[in-house]
Amino acid sequence: MFMVITKYVKDIEEVDRWLPAHSAFLDRYYARKKVIFSGRRNPRTGGAILFRVDERAELDAILAEDPLQNKRRNGMRGLRDHPDKIRRGLRHIRREDIGQ
């Protein structure tokens, strides 16, 4: 899994123009079960997305499709994580528990 933390590098008005396309991008990857959660930071300076992917190359390929990323409207960093402990109701999010 990778946690992606973004920080807007353009004015919020510029970011807002691209949010519908960004939302559609996220919807595609929710449907493919690659995104576990996503949301805006508070205060609204960026966002966070938890991806269920194994390799950095796969994450980079996905992020290349994100309108906010590929139009340089935000900066990002991806942090790789393998959860050792997960609350019982959330255990299904681990790749090995889904059977991918």
Score class of each variant (00 low, 15 high):
Arg88Leu: 10
Glu13Cys: 08
Leu26Lys: 13
Ile62Asn: 00
Arg94Thr: 08
Ala61Cys: 00
Arg95Met: 03
Gly89Gln: 13
Arg56Gly: 09
Val4Pro: 03
Trp18Glu: 10
Glu14Arg: 12
Leu19Glu: 09
Pro67Lys: 04
Arg88His: 11
Arg56Ser: 08
Ile36Leu: 13
Arg32Asn: 10
Gly75Pro: 08
Asp84Ile: 10
Gly99His: 12
Lys34Thr: 01
Ala24Phe: 08
Val53His: 05
Gly78Pro: 05
Arg41His: 05
Val15Phe: 09
His22Cys: 02
Ala48Asn: 05
Val53Asp: 00
Lys71Glu: 15
Ala64Pro: 07
Asp27Ser: 09
Ile5Val: 14
Asp60Pro: 00
Thr45Gly: 02
Ala57Pro: 02
Arg17His: 12
Arg77Gln: 14
Arg95Leu: 01
Arg77Asn: 12
Gly78His: 06
Val15Ala: 07
Gly75Asp: 15
Pro43Ile: 00
Leu50Gln: 00
Arg56Lys: 15
Ala24Arg: 12
Arg91Gln: 11
Val4Tyr: 00
Pro67Tyr: 04
Ala61Ile: 01
Ile86Cys: 14
Glu96Ile: 01
Val15Asn: 00
Glu65Lys: 04
Arg77Pro: 07
Asn42Phe: 06
Asp27Glu: 14
Asp27Pro: 11
Ile12Gly: 11
His82Phe: 11
Ala64Trp: 08
Pro20Met: 08
Gly47Trp: 06
Gly78Glu: 11
Val4Glu: 03
Phe51Met: 06
Leu26Tyr: 13
Arg40Ile: 01
Arg17Met: 06
Arg32Trp: 07
Arg32Gln: 13
Val35Glu: 04
Gly99Asp: 13
Trp18His: 12
Gly89Thr: 12
Ile36His: 08
Leu19Tyr: 10
Arg95Ala: 04
Asn70Tyr: 14
Gly46Arg: 02
Ile5Cys: 07
Gly46Phe: 03
Arg91Asp: 04
Arg87Tyr: 15
Glu14Gly: 09
His22Leu: 03
Thr45His: 04
Glu14Lys: 11
Ala64Val: 07
Tyr29Met: 05
